[in-house]
Amino acid sequence: MNWDWQVVDDFMPKFWDGVLVTLQALGWGTLIAFSLGLVWAIALRSDQKWITWPVAAVTEFIRNTPLLVQLFFLFYVVPEWGPTMSPLTTGIIGLGLHYSTYTAEVYRAGIEGVPVGQWEAATALSLSKRRTWTAVILPQAIRRVIPALGNYVVAMLKDSPMISAIGALDMLGEGRAFSDTTFTTEALTVVGVAFIVIAYPASLLLRALERRLVR
């Protein structure tokens, strides 16, 4: 057993910097995943094949390939013909895009869970398509899927250290940098414990939420 609390002490300032970056990635990533996923879900309900088919193909492809390789793609390939982005920005876009394909499925299930009668009632009242979605369908669908969406936020938290592979200084990025320069490993243990400490209460919260929202 080889453990030095002094090393932990020295790491702490960097650790908190890393926490901040992780939370930023998670916050913005969630925002993108939640909104883009909704766009996918609504597009997939379109009756135009030229909309549904490409959207289905793209989301399936993104969902079934590794986030890590997608991050490499965004970081190394996209700048060849597009904008150059910082590691954190790339990470946020990667996380958001990847998880939007999961939230799309969640929304889809939620939308399908709204009884057909609700669509029929909206038609009977001659609500516009837009009003039908925003006033009738989505409020009912989203309420039911909040716990499932929350689960993906926790999943995203656990995948967020991947952005350190393209150089972002999140919790793991800071931990690796610190360990490499000081030839110690305590920082990695601290980061590992930190994830459990954050994820456990988050999942407890989600379960409580699930009990309240899903009858």
């Binding site: 490993t185 990695l188 243990t189 954050i198 456990y200 999942s203």
Partner: peptide, 23 residues
Amino acid sequence: EIFRGTSALVMMFWMAYAVPSLL
């Protein structure tokens, strides 16, 4: 609860680099 809360990537680094010096 512990392993579900763990990030696989962090775990991997921990196993590869921290466990040798720790244990």
